[in-house]
C-alpha cells in the first residue's frame, strides 16, 4: 500500500515541556487513522507540525513521499481545533476565499454545502452561526478541494447527538471513497466506530499503535457470581484461568485465550455449581486505552 504520511522522530519542545517526543508513525492510503490521547498529550501539536503552523524542534516528516512544501497542503483538507473563518464574511464568501487559496474551483461550493447541510444558511454571516454549524462549515471547507487526505481534530466537539451521528456517517462515507483520514479525538467510542487503525499518545510519547480490530483480542473477562466459598475454590481449580478478583457481588475472572464462557459454565456445572450470574464482558477500546495509558511508563 502506498504511504501517505510518514513521520520520523518528530519532536517539539515548548520551553522545557516536551509536547511531542520522538514520534515515528506511518499512515498508508485508505486508512482511517485515529489519534487518541488525553488532553495535552500532543495530538494538536503533532497535526500543527504536519500542517506547517508549528515549527518542529527536530525530526522530519513527509507527505506522499515528498518533503513538506507549502503546495502539498493544498491537497490536504484540514480542520485543526475549532473552526476558523473570517467572522464578518458569509459562509459562502469564506468558502470562496478558501477555494481561491486552495486553487480549487468554486463550482464545488454548492456540493460541499449540500454535504454538510448548510445550503440554506450560506448567505448569513459566519458570526451568526451556531457552534455545530461552524463545525460543519469547517468540514465543508476541508472537503472543498476534493482532498486525498482529510485531517480532522475533534470534529464532533460541541455537536448535538444528531450532529455527531451525521458527522460519523459523513466520515465513513468519505472513507469509503478511498480517502485517507487522520482523526484526532478523545472520544474513544467515536474512534472505535469509524477508524481502522489507531495510535495512543501520552505526554507527547506514542505508547501504542495498531489496527482497531486487534482491540478485544486476548483473554475473555467474565463476571461470575454470587460470591461464595464453593465457587471460589472451584474457580481456583479451573484450568483455563489467568487471574481472579472480587468485584462488588461477583468474581471477575480473566480466562486464557481460546477459552470461552461456555467452557467455564460447563465446568462449573460439572462441579455441581449453578452460577446465578455469568456475563462475558466485551473489551472496548476504552478499557484497552485506559490499560495502555496506565501501563505506559511516565517519563
Amino acid at each position: 500500500m502506498e504511504t501517505v504520511l510518514s513521520i520520523n522522530n518528530l519532536t517539539k519542545h515548548f520551553g522545557r515541556i516536551k509536547a511531542v517526543n520522538n514520534m515515528t508513525l506511518e499512515v498508508k492510503r485508505g486508512m482511517v487513522f485515529g489519534m487518541l490521547g488525553p488532553n495535552g498529550s500532543g495530538k494538536t501539536t503533532t497535526l500543527g507540525m504536519l500542517m506547517g503552523v508549528v515549527n518542529k524542534t527536530s525530526g522530519s516528516f513527509s507527505w506522499f513521499g515528498e518533503l513538506p512544501k507549502d503546495e502539498i497542503r493544498k491537497k490536504i483538507g484540514a480542520v485543526l481545533e475549532h473552526p476558523i473563518f473570517y467572522p464578518y464574511l458569509t459562509g459562502q464568501q469564506n468558502l470562496e476565499l478558501n477555494a481561491m487559496i486552495k486553487e480549487s474551483t468554486p463550482a464545488n461550493i454548492p456540493k460541499v454545502l449540500e454535504i454538510v447541510e448548510l445550503s440554506d444558511r450560506k448567505d448569513d454571516k459566519y458570526k451568526t452561526y451556531s457552534l455545530g454549524m461552524k463545525q460543519r462549515l469547517a468540514i465543508a471547507s476541508a472537503l472543498l478541494n476534493d482532498p486525498i487526505v482529510l485531517i480532522l481534530d475533534e470534529p464532533t466537539n460541541g455537536l448535538d447527538p444528531m450532529g455527531i451521528a451525521e458527522i460519523r456517517k459523513l466520515i465513513k462515507k468519505i472513507a469509503e471513497d478511498g480517502k485517507t483520514i487522520i482523526l484526532a479525538s478523545h472520544l474513544l467510542d467515536e474512534v472505535q466506530k469509524v477508524c481502522s487503525h489507531f495510535a495512543v499518545l501520552k505526554k507527547g510519547n506514542m505508547v501504542y499503535t495498531g489496527p482497531v480490530e486487534d482491540v478485544g483480542k486476548g483473554g475473555l473477562v467474565i463476571e461470575v457470581g454470587p460470591i461464595d466459598n464453593q465457587l471460589h475454590s472451584a474457580l481456583k481449580n479451573f484450568h483455563g484461568i489467568v487471574s481472579m478478583k472480587d468485584e462488588n457481588n461477583h468474581f471477575l475472572v480473566t480466562l486464557q485465550e481460546g477459552i470461552k464462557s461456555q467452557d467455564l459454565n460447563k465446568y462449573l456445572f460439572e462441579q455441581g455449581i449453578a452460577a446465578s450470574h455469568l456475563i462475558a464482558r466485551k473489551k472496548t477500546l476504552e478499557q484497552q486505552f485506559l490499560e495502555i495509558l496506565s501501563e505506559a511508563p511516565t517519563s
Binding site: M51, V53, S141
Partner: peptide, 17 residues
C-alpha cells in the same frame, strides 16, 4: 486574533505569500 492566519497556512498559503 481571529487565527485566520493559522487557517490560511493550514490551507496551503506559505508564510512568505
Amino acid at each position: 486574533s481571529y487565527r485566520t492566519l493559522r487557517q490560511n497556512v493550514i490551507d496551503g498559503v506559505s508564510r512568505l505569500d
